[in-house]
Design a protein around this nucleic acid. Structure first.
Length: 573
RNA sequence: UGGGGUGUCGCCAAGUGGUAAGGCACUAGGUUUUGAUCCUAGCAUGCGCAGGUUCGAAUCCUGCCACCCCAGCCA
């Protein structure tokens, strides 16, 4: 059960965007008989990343806002690149993000038989033919951006011959690449996608869903529009690079017999009028200092440059989750970024803002000393247990016991021998507030033989618990942990993975050379207060004055705690 | 120099002919037992550029300029 506050960085009314407007208009005009049906169609050839989150939020969000549904459909037409591992991870990620797809998971591959039938229909209508050009020859015949292409030698084959050849392709009579089924459109079209695009290619490979049932596989262009139509999708949302494909999307659907399509669709038995889906494109999400390209992500994982698809430094949903990002923060971020058609690169600061906003409201506070420096409270009569608020602004989050003993640790960075201008923490001879406890004064510094400071001897003003000292102001507050009652932990700090703002820029020759060598810092021997070390404690904490941390889901054990820094606190000095 | 797109504050982004929303970032104050949070204020005589239409233009017209996408039997 979640008692989290639903943090929002926007006003109550979501920002207008062209897709919401289009849907509102379609609803008003009854274009799809009042239906809104979307789909999120990943290819299971990699892990989902932050860019997918935008598409997921858009597709699921826009459906939910309008009383519609969103399907999850694996666009699995290229078995050589795909696997079950990715299918499972993708489903998991979507659920984690907080979305529920309509009915069962869909697969384009489950439409293979229908797709084949439509291929035959196109042949019968004289709109498709079996071409025997090799891939290289086809490229030559295609022409260039400025020159028209030439017709395939087999373009005018008879319907009977095409039918026979297509059947034999399916039967496995030909080796890979010897022929393909092509749409007969226009080899001189200025839109290269319309120059007789390939509909089916021969691939004698095993498919993760259909096994060895097929040796011919339909292409994206052919499959996607028909799959949308079969599922009764009303609004097919995709990214800008598919804009040039829209004429083909429409050509294929309009070339087919609409009654036949409806008869194999989810709406087959429905009385609602059947309307073909419409493709609409939006700009994909790009964020500076991060890599989102599937090939690049894959390279980082495969070359061992990160620990895996869920490495906390990666912008994969699995990585962000392990890092401690919350689904709420990601959803709010996607909403704040908006949806438009201009290609833009969002500042990672926006993502971090959404994260801090959610964590600040919902993460209980705790104390953890990252670089311990021993402090002895010379006048503490006896150990005591303090009861501290888990959240400074939310009493409902309760309180916790925090043991205070004569031996404590503070962060090395919170002590200076000499006062420096602007330094508000502890200095030799000075005073500082121990968060939630006493004001202490540093009376003496203990050094080892090499001269390094190993201990501070401090006296507490025993009259400052819950009240300010009399006659003076103590402005500094530092965090601390009981040395004897605290629990040892490993803490991993993260910095951005890349040293440059745009590692995916095309004038970057090898992006792996731009990796930040300091993207991961491992701190051993950190000391965390007992309450935060308990196995049943919250998933994420704000370690006061340090930032937000989460127990590592893979490496942390009850007797060997590992915390990942999700993000630091905003620092204004 | 074929076709398709996009250009509003440092970064996103509303705006759909009636006189430039909002968020992030930043700056300056205030509160604070987290140098956090929170609060308050500031931040585009200007909407890629140049003309034109109009009482009035970011919005309409014309012409430029810049950037992005397309020549996989990938998606």
């Amino acid at each position: 059960m979640s008692v989290n506050k639903d943090t929002k960085n926007n006003s109550d009314t979501p920002t207008s965007n062209f897709i919401r407007q289009m849907i509102a208009e379609d609803l008003a005009s009854q274009r799809h008989a009042g239906r809104v049906q979307t789909r999120f169609p990943p290819e299971p050839n990699g892990y989902l990343h932050i860019g997918h989150a935008k598409s997921i939020c858009l597709n699921f969000g826009v459906a939910a806002e309008n009383g519609g549904q969103c399907n999850l459909r694996f666009d699995d037409t290229n078995p050589a690149a795909e696997s079950l591992e990715f299918v499972d991870a993708i489903k998991e990620n979507i659920k984690w993000l907080g979305f529920e797809w309509s009915g069962e998971v869909r697969y384009s591959s489950s439409y293979f038989e229908a797709l084949y039938g439509f291929g035959v229909q196109l042949i019968d209508k004289g709109l498709a033919y079996v071409c025997e050009l090799s891939a290289d020859e086809a490229r030559e015949y295609r022409g260039t951006l400025t020159e028209p292409g030439r017709n395939s030698p087999q373009r005018e084959r008879s319907v009977a011959e095409n039918r026979d050849l297509f059947a034999r392709m399916r039967a496995g009579e030909f080796v890979d690449g010897t022929c393909s089924l092509r749409a007969k459109i226009d080899m001189s079209s200025p839109n290269i996608n319309m120059r007789d695009p390939v509909l089916y290619r021969i691939r004698h490979v095993h498919h993760h869903q259909t096994g060895d049932a097929w040796c011919i596989y339909p292409t994206y262009d052919y499959t996607h529009c028909i799959s949308d139509a079969i599922e009764g999708i009303t609004h097919s949302l995709c990214t800008l690079e598919f804009e040039d494909h829209r004429p083909l999307y429409d050509w294929i659907l309009n070339s087919l017999d609409i009654d036949t399509i409806k008869s194999v669709s989810d709406l087959a038995d429905s009385a609602t009028p059947y309307v073909l889906p419409q493709q609409t494109e939006f700009a994909k999400l790009k964020i500076n200092y991060t890599v989102v390209g599937k090939r690049k992500l894959k390279q980082l994982v495969n070359e061992g440059l990160v620990s895996g698809w869920d490495d906390p430094r990666l912008s994969t949903l699995a990585g962000l989750r392990r890092r401690g990002y919350t689904a709420t923060a990601l959803r709010n971020f996607c909403e704040s970024v908006g949806v438009a058609r201009s290609e833009s690169q969002v500042d990672i600061g926006m993502l971090e803002h959404a994260l801090r906003e959610d964590l600040d409201a919902n993460a209980p506070r705790a104390m953890c000393v990252l670089r311990p420096l021993k402090v002895t409270l010379t006048n503490l009569p006896e150990p005591l247990t303090l009861s501290l608020q888990n959240h400074p602004k939310n009493d409902e989050m309760g309180r916790r016991d925090v043991p205070l003993t004569a031996d404590i640790v503070i962060d090395k960075d919170d002590f200076r021998e000499q006062a420096e201008p602007g330094f508000k923490r502890l200095v030799n001879g000075g005073e500082v507030r121990l968060r939630g406890a006493y004001v202490i004064r540093c009376d003496d510094v203990v050094r080892d033989t090499s001269g390094e400071i190993v201990e501070l001897l401090c006296s507490a003003d025993l009259n400052t618990l819950g009240k300010n000292p009399e006659g003076r102001k103590v402005k500094g507050v530092i965090h601390w942990v009981s040395a004897s009652a605290g629990v040892s932990a490993t803490v991993r700090l993260y910095d951005r993975l890349f040293t440059v703002e745009n590692p995916e820029s095309k004038d970057v020759e090898d992006f792996t050379t731009l990796l930040n060598p300091d993207s991961l810092t491992v701190l051993e021997g950190c000391l965390v207060e007992p309450a935060a070390a308990q196995a049943d404690s919250a998933p994420s904490f704000q370690f006061e004055r340090e930032g937000y941390f989460t127990r590592d889901s893979v490496d942390s054990r009850d007797d060997a705690l590992v915390f990942n820094q999700t993000i630091g606190l905003r620092a204004s000095f």
